[in-house]
Amino acid sequence: MLMKSNEIAQVGVIAAVYAACTLIAILFLGSLAWGPIQFRVSEALCAIALFTPAAIPGLTLGCAIANIANIVLSGTGALGLLDVVFGSLATCLGAAFTWEMRRHPLVALAGPVVANALIVPAYLPILLTATGFYTIPFTSISLDGAWPLMYLFGVVTTGIGEAVIMYVLGYPLSKSLARTPYFKGSSPFKREREAAR
């Protein structure tokens, strides 16, 4: 099925906003936006997937663009392609889950949390070692040969960081977007209110 021109425009705008927000966060928050403990503020934009399926390719493309740019900023070189591929995959799966579960917004917003918590920590130890992190943060446990421990650490910290972003920023963002004329007709909160009656 071919996309309509307005859907293509939505994909482009969402991708540009996600990439810009990520790069601004990386520049100002440093390793808090990309590192062992992540609060990638741009992930709050996954809430847009509650309103339009165009958010799925838009967020995925935006994540890929931001992660490609981050290869230059962080100095990860070719290893940064892990983040381009698998980080973008996590964003894609999270956004797809959000769209599929849009009738239940609080559940839907868990999609990016789970996808990022399970996928990102699988390759993060490799990237961290390449950029100068040699121990699990706040411990003296070496990353060398400690992949299972680092993965568990990453599941917890990435999951918590993503949950904070999705529910503290993403949920209020989605409530605000639901009041705009552009998204009012596709608001999942409208259905929520009707179901409560």
Rank of each mutant, 00 (worst) to 15 (best):
L23E: 06
P148L: 08
A130G: 02
A54F: 02
G80Q: 08
A117E: 03
A33Y: 03
I14T: 06
S187A: 06
F183I: 10
R103Q: 13
A69V: 00
P121I: 02
E7W: 00
I160P: 15
N70H: 12
A44W: 08
G58M: 04
T129H: 04
A96E: 01
L124H: 08
I160K: 14
I119T: 06
C92A: 10
V84H: 10
A95V: 01
A90W: 00
A19P: 01
R193P: 03
G75A: 12
I141K: 11
A20R: 14
D83P: 09
S42F: 02
N70A: 15
L82V: 05
H104A: 12
N70M: 15
V168E: 08
F28Y: 05
Y123A: 00
F39Q: 00
G75Y: 15
I141M: 06
T22K: 01
F97M: 08
A90Q: 05
P36F: 02
Y182T: 07
I126N: 01
C92T: 10
G159H: 00
R40W: 00
Y182P: 00
F138S: 05
M101F: 10
M101D: 03
L32M: 03
A47T: 03
G161K: 13
L23M: 08
P137S: 04
A47E: 05
T129P: 01
G94P: 08
Y182Q: 06
I119A: 04
Q10T: 13
T131F: 09
A178D: 03
Y151Q: 04
P112E: 07
P125V: 00
N116P: 13
P105G: 10
G170M: 05
T157K: 14
W99H: 12
S187Q: 09
T131W: 06
V113A: 03
F97W: 02
E100S: 11
R193W: 13
L2H: 13
L29K: 14
E192Y: 10
T60R: 03
E43N: 12
I56T: 09
S5A: 15
A25I: 09
V114H: 01
A115D: 01
G94S: 03
R193E: 14
L79G: 00
L59A: 02
A54E: 04
A44N: 08
H104L: 11
I165F: 09
G30L: 10
L106A: 11
V120W: 00
C63Y: 10
T135W: 02
T135C: 05
S187M: 04
Y18N: 11
P125L: 00
A44G: 05
G159E: 00
G94T: 07
A15N: 05
P181E: 11
